[in-house]
Computed example of a mutant assay.
Amino acid sequence: MKAARMNDIFDQCIADYHQTDHVDSAENNTFPKDSFDHLLYHKNWIDTVQWHLEDIIRDPKIKAEDALVIKRRIDASNQDRTDLVEQVDDYYLSSFGDINPKKHARVNTESPAWAIDRLSILALKIYHMRVEASRTDVNDELLNKNQFKLNVLLTQREDLSLAIDQLIEDLQSGDRIMKVYRQMKMYNDPELNPVLYAKKNNG
């Protein structure tokens, strides 16, 4: 799949979310359940909901107990996001598992899925910066700043999309090595977080 198709899926997901613009809205993923499209849409839905949770928690008037609930949701969302990234990498591991890397093959700085993760977040930045660049309640100076930022983000998406396409082509040809390191988040693990296992051991 080309990065342009990924961008289309992310843009569709973000537009679907903003039909209700609510963090508790049901996900409207109409792609076949076992398809890569479905996986990418679900990944971006998690990112989109978390984006808005991050907005909510920054409200200076939010009550402490409400902020704690949102913080817990964000923590859970980060774990879901990591799990989805690994599922995307599983897809590529399966796709390129039979390819023997060439002698000169290089290791990339990140797996395809983590690059796609950045592409998903970039789609969100573009959507929201486009909104800011279209406001009618601010002065021209701010609008021009926002438009400049939007142009930078659009260029960044072009470059990242090209880089992802080139990475996948290199993996297919054996010019790069498909190598994945699983995330080892320690603070979520009751066996690795001292605060959690101390409580467990102390009853």
Rank of each mutant, 00 (worst) to 15 (best):
F148Q: 14
L153G: 05
L84G: 10
L124K: 07
L84H: 12
V88E: 08
I177R: 11
L142T: 15
L68S: 01
D89A: 13
I9E: 03
N78F: 10
T30R: 13
W45Y: 13
D117R: 11
N188K: 09
G97D: 05
F36S: 01
T109A: 08
L192F: 05
K125W: 12
Y181S: 08
A163I: 03
T155P: 00
A64K: 00
A4K: 07
N151L: 11
N28P: 02
L84W: 08
S111Y: 01
N151A: 15
Q87R: 12
L53Q: 12
R72P: 03
T155D: 10
V152T: 13
R106C: 09
I62V: 06
H18L: 09
L93M: 11
L192E: 05
E141S: 10
M184S: 07
E110C: 05
A26G: 06
A115I: 03
V195Q: 07
K199D: 07
A115W: 10
V85G: 05
S111W: 02
K179R: 11
I126M: 10
K2V: 09
L196H: 06
D75I: 14
D137I: 03
R118M: 04
R176Q: 11
V152E: 14
S134M: 14
Q147Y: 06
N7Q: 15
N202D: 12
S25E: 04
V49S: 02
Q19R: 15
D34S: 10
N29A: 10
